[in-house]
Design a protein around this nucleic acid. Structure first.
Lengths: 339, 339
DNA sequence: CTGAAAGCGCTTACAG
DNA sequence: CTGAAAGCGCTTACAG
């Protein structure tokens, strides 16, 4: 079906190819009569414009790239990614762009993917999930290629790059302030990977909240995690040696592991150890405990990133846009208070 | 960078456009001398072929589509999907195809996506994750459009459609046989969604193993799950009223929930209730319990699907190929025996 | 082994 | 509001 061309439709309706093209592309200034007849012919025949011809003539591919440098194992276990993908995919669909997906696993992948991704005619713009040092290369590459680009997350180097991020510092700050307000005094944290900006930013918020309230910094109450449940479990075991009365865990998935470690050690949540997570992604309820957490708008992050990117493409906005989305404290039972 | 055309390279080297094209496309019968000089020029200039022009002339887009009808909430919580995506993405990269991603969330999406997906010039072929009744429509659509198609999973109607699937019946059969061999007598199951072929097939394997050993079918020992941890938890609570001494859970994620329910009820795994899962995807270890499970080759499923699809596209193999991958019983501690 | 030329199916000034 | 025509940048028989 549909080896039809514009020409075929034109002949059928008795107008020129140009006119059919204008109808297809919703140009103004077409007589109602002609428009109707062309549309009818398209409908009857099932005509579909040839995408390649269109791109070639218009110099637009109407497709966006998404590059996921798979620097992290949490890609397979954290619901963050599917949610992000959903937001991106929906927004693309909404705006009539297609989405081309690149999972960058190894150096070999890069060699094949880099040229594709920066190819002028192939993608109108690209989204890069980032926040690791290792990702700087691909970002640099794209910037050099002068390709419209929006980073998901905060890149290490921010100059000249647009990004959409969540306010991680403030989110963590809010979480820890909540614990302080509830009277906790030995507040610990399981961070994200400290090679990533997410990890660093949430740690910074943690330190900021404590510092402001005159807590002395205690490195033994800070353990680096990796955004996996296992990681949360082991990190918590380490922390428990220091007898914390609270823990801010930089992701809900890790919080599940942390809770397991706490309970196995014979301590109770929240009585002995209060816990706040980060994400608020639908998770298993652990026993009858519900997790207090920082909600971040993951789907919206994806949607906004697509919108910014399309704006860059279509309106040529050339100064970098930095969008920081807000988070929200969601109080449940894992801190022992509903206030 | 790279608004260069073939013509530019040709002029630079002093050959014709055709010759440069042949070098770029690795055609045989090019003198070594010319090839070297052309390659050098390409290297120096950073020339990249225009993808749209290429597609238009060759009638090939070198891109595959992946459609995920998101009929299931498990998309967000089951590591199955990221693994599948990884396999697909790697294979595409390997074979120099790009991958375009479609998440079909609602009817509205379909209206926009269907035409794109069947557009002759846009995708050379498409992969559809399937197994739900609801997916028949998109498959039918693609078959009508005569588009090279490979289904991931077993579609409800198999005629004329190629697919790559895992031997779910046999996998489940093996799991349950293992439980029988260990002397369990009240063997229950939490199935997958019974609107899906995965769910149905694994249930069939369960029934087959029991039937063969002369067990009477007991509907109370069969509860439908939904592939989520929560679902596993609640389904198990229902099953526990029947006092099973074993349970075959149709996914590892649900098994986590089931174990939680069992332990909360004061029973022990494996002493009181033995449990076998399905997937063998890296999961949190639950306490010090390790899950006996059926390993299925998820990444390989993705890889094979891509390979079959590319074969359909490039070699025009037109009889449907049905590939069934084998599973493997992985014995750990959740059944109480290492034998 | 190489080149000239037609053709892929659109878009888009330009002219009217 | 509509059409004729140039042009987007490749591939690929065809001829030599």
């Amino acid at each position: 079906m549909s080896n039809l061309t514009l020409e075929d439709i034109a002949r059928r309706v008795g107008v020129s190819r140009s006119t059919v093209s204008r109808v297809v592309n919703n140009h103004p200034n077409i007589s109602e009569d002609v428009r109707t007849r062309v549309l009818a012919a398209i409908d009857e025949t099932g005509y579909q414009p040839n995408a390649a011809a269109r791109s070639l003539a218009s110099q637009r591919s109407q497709t966006l790239g998404l590059a996921l440098p798979q620097t992290v194992s949490s890609f397979f276990t954290d619901p963050y990614f599917p949610h992000l993908l959903k937001g991106i995919s929906e927004a693309c669909n909404q705006h009539d762009y297609a989405l081309t997906f690149f999972l960058i696993t190894c150096k070999d992948d890069e060699k094949k993917i880099f040229p594709k991704i920066s190819n002028k005619s192939f993608l109108d713009g690209v989204l890069v999930q980032s926040g690791h040092h290792g990702d700087q290369q691909i970002i640099g590459h794209l910037v050099d290629a002068n390709k419209p680009l929006v980073v998901l997350g905060r890149p290490f180097r921010v100059d000249n790059v647009s990004f959409v991020n969540v306010d991680n510092v403030k989110g963590a700050y809010t979480a820890v302030s909540h614990l302080i307000r509830l009277g906790r005094r030995r507040i610990s944290t399981i961070t994200g990977p400290l090679a990533s900006t997410v990890g660093l930013d949430r740690k910074e918020g943690f330190l900021m909240a404590l510092g402001e309230r005159g807590f002395r910094k205690n490195d033994k109450l800070i353990v680096e995690g990796d955004f996996t449940e296992q990681g949360g479990y082991y990190s918590m075991q380490t922390l428990l040696r220091e007898n914390p009365d609270a823990v801010f865990v930089a992701s809900d998935v890790m919080a599940i592991g942390a809770i397991r470690a706490i309970q196995e050690s014979g301590r109770r949540v929240p009585e002995d150890v209060a816990i706040v997570g980060f994400d608020d992604i639908p998770l298993s309820t652990i026993t009858d405990l519900e997790l207090t957490t920082i909600r971040q708008p993951v789907i919206e992050t994806g949607v906004r990133a697509v919108e910014v990117l399309i704006d860059l493409i279509e309106n040529g906005t050339d100064f970098p846009q930095h969008i920081i989305l807000d988070t929200k404290l969601v109080v449940r039972s894992s801190c022992g208070s509903k206030s």
